[in-house]
């Protein structure tokens, strides 16, 4: 019988299999193996972690395909890679390489300041960042099969990820309490497709998997995001910018499984070495913030 590839069920399905897991940023095949050994459910292959992109400045683009292929060869778990917002040719290239998920990411320099990629056209699934419910549903409308909070990448400060998670969950709670006649105005107000607003209201959650990302640096940060209702966690600079990456990575994996068990969290948080240094977001000038990228 026929086999149907690239259906929305299959795209969304891989994200469902990643739930309760940790996706780690890696910049070399060695990092990728450390991540896999620590129990990562997937790795994000890139040339520079967000903390370095932030520090070095300049235009941040899709990584060299050679590096991505080497990382794909190094591990058996899914490999993700980033493209610039709106850069559909970078996405075509990553699809041709066979990456398992594409992150259309604000961490890279946007290629289009009005439009995101039309993601339904691709066989490979996409994850996109969102700061609130309207942004999440616009991305899903364009074909994103997974959503993550934006947070403020490369800072090691979890405050923005918390803000974005609370915004999405809070708006869903509000939506569920609206009478039928107020739903259309709500959709208009948040700038989201009406059909997806209805689906979200009926489900009581986003119609796709929703991970936390941006600023997560400790097992406690990861468990905090899980208790706030996220389905799993991306850790970018937080692992390989810390003193003992393998140990910290394994601890964050355990924290995401046992996020509701303070005694276990206390045990796995011990002796992890130095966390990444981090930058307090409130001390960063407005024009250097990246969460505002995305339309």
């Amino acid at each position: 019988m026929d086999q149907e590839k690239g259906t929305f069920k299959v795209k969304k399905g891989l994200a469902q299999m990643l739930k309760g897991g940790v996706i780690m940023d890696v910049v070399t095949p060695e990092h990728a193996r450390i991540a896999e050994d620590a129990g990562a459910v997937a790795v994000m292959a890139l040339e520079r972690v967000p903390a370095d992109i932030r520090a070095q400045g300049g235009v941040a683009r899709m990584s060299d395909p050679e590096l991505i292929l080497k990382i794909m060869d190094a591990v058996t778990i899914p490999v993700m890679a980033k493209v610039r917002i709106g850069h559909f040719v970078e996405a075509q290239i990553l699809e041709a390489l066979g990456v398992d998920y594409i992150d259309e990411s604000e961490v890279l320099t946007p290629a289009d300041e009005e439009h995101h990629i039309y993601k339904h056209n691709f066989t490979v699934p996409f994850v996109c960042g969102a700061r609130n419910l309207g942004e999440a549903l616009r991305r899903i409308g364009e074909g994103a099969a997974m959503i993550r909070t934006k947070g403020e990448a490369g800072t090691g400060d979890v405050v923005e990820a918390v803000r974005h998670a609370r915004a999405v969950m809070g708006e869903i709670r509000r939506l569920q309490n609206l009478p039928d006649e107020e739903v259309m105005a709500f959709a208009k107000q948040i700038g989201a497709p009406y059909e997806l607003v209805l689906e979200t209201r009926q489900l009581g959650r986003l119609p796709v998997v929703n991970f936390a990302a941006g600023g997560i640096a400790t097992p406690a940060d990861a468990a905090l995001m899980m208790q706030l209702g996220m389905d799993g966690v991306f850790v970018g600079s937080g692992i390989f910018k810390s003193g003992d990456p393998a140990r910290r990575a394994a601890a964050i994996v355990k924290a995401v499984t046992h996020y509701n068990e303070p005694k276990i969290l206390a045990e796995i948080s011990r002796n992890l070495g130095e966390p990444m240094v981090g930058r307090q977001i409130s001390a960063i000038p407005e024009h250097e913030l990246i969460a505002g990228r995305g339309w």
Partner: peptide, 10 residues
């Protein structure tokens, strides 16, 4: 294969 080869069938 990889994710692009994931499929549905009867």
């Amino acid at each position: 294969g990889r994710q692009v080869d994931s499929f549905e069938t009867l």
